[in-house]
């Protein structure tokens, strides 16, 4: 509903936007008639909701194709990119957070904390620019475009996706590392950690069996909430690396005032975000006996 309202407030004449400013007014009127954009807002809304319930997302105005045909491949491409970014960032960020926590207040903690925070605060496209200039231009080791040639194998695709994924990694790193750090510090201070130390367990065992197990729970939940922010980054990254994902699709849809496409992509982004949050909740309760048992009682 909110999505629909926001998209409908977009000013301008759809037919005019597609055909350009010099098109004949009669052609514009005809196109509007054909697309149904000259009907009232209420009728269009009912039509849209009805379509979604039947599993039909409607047709794109600008591309003149069913939205489904555009959205699914784009979502798959974005999923590949996001997956690669997460596969890199999650272990690295957790390691960074734990290392920082173990040296709390010391130099390496300050470096990781401030460095991570700064990395997170620098916009994705700025990271992208640095990465392109260094790796694609000066060192000439990685391709600038993220779009691998058709039929490329998994490894080739990953090579093409490495630079855009790295740009996302920098922005995601700080937040996840900060959560891992906070969780580890809390677990280190807990009574069970002190008990484990006092009964003479070696430091490694205490860390592995008692501290990490407890400290990583909140971190996992945070990783899922980052999916929402990831989409904001995808728009920029996919644009700059010329990659046909959901973010680039949304950008093109917004530029062409392609309402059905805007609505569907934003709706889809919302759904993916909700699913990620839900998955995090389930994972969290599976991993945390306290929550699981509280439900069964």
């Amino acid at each position: 509903m909110i999505i629909f309202a926001a998209a409908q407030i977009l000013p301008g004449d759809v037919g005019r936007a597609i055909l350009g400013p010099f098109a004949d007014q009669r052609a514009v009127d005809q196109l509007n008639e054909e697309l149904g954009t000259n009907r009232s807002v209420v009728v269009q809304y009912a039509d849209w909701i009805g379509g979604i319930l039947r599993g039909d997302l409607g047709d794109s105005y600008a591309f003149r194709r069913p939205v489904e045909d555009l959205v699914w491949p784009a979502l798959q491409n974005s999923a590949k990119l996001a997956l690669l970014a997460f596969v890199i960032v999650v272990p690295v960020a957790i390691l960074g957070g734990v290392v920082a926590a173990l040296g709390e207040g010391r130099f390496r903690d300050r470096v990781i904390s401030i460095g991570g925070l700064s990395a997170t605060a620098i916009p994705e496209f700025v990271w992208a620019v640095f990465l392109i200039i260094v790796f694609a231009l000066w060192l000439d080791v990685l391709p600038v475009s993220a779009q691998a040639p058709d039929g490329a194998g998994v490894l080739t695709q990953a090579r093409y996706l490495l630079l855009p994924a790295l740009a996302l990694v920098f922005v995601l790193f700080g937040y996840i590392a900060r959560m891992a750090r906070a969780g580890t510090i809390e677990a280190l201070d807990a009574d069970y950690a002190r008990t484990a130390y006092l009964k003479g367990l070696p430091r490694r065992t205490v860390l592995r069996r008692h501290v990490l197990r407890n400290s990583l729970l909140p971190t996992i939940a945070v990783v899922a909430t980052q999916v929402g922010y990831l989409f904001g980054g995808l728009v920029v990254i996919e644009l700059i690396f010329n990659y046909h994902g959901i973010g680039e699709l949304l950008y093109r849809a917004v530029q062409r005032q392609d309402f059905p496409l805007i609505q569907s992509t934003v709706l889809l982004i919302g759904i993916v975000y909700l699913l990620a949050t839900l998955a995090a909740d389930i994972l969290y309760s599976l991993l945390n006996p306290r929550i699981r048992l509280a439900h069964e009682e």
């Binding site: 926001a6 407030i9 000013p11 904001g232 920029v236 950008y251 805007i262 934003v266």
Partner: peptide, 20 residues
């Protein structure tokens, strides 16, 4: 809470298109 569920850049993109 509902507001926070939508990524800010995406929301900004859609709203700024509407407003100019």
């Amino acid at each position: 809470d509902a507001f926070l569920a939508i990524p800010p850049v995406i929301l900004g993109l859609v709203v700024l298109t509407a407003l100019g």
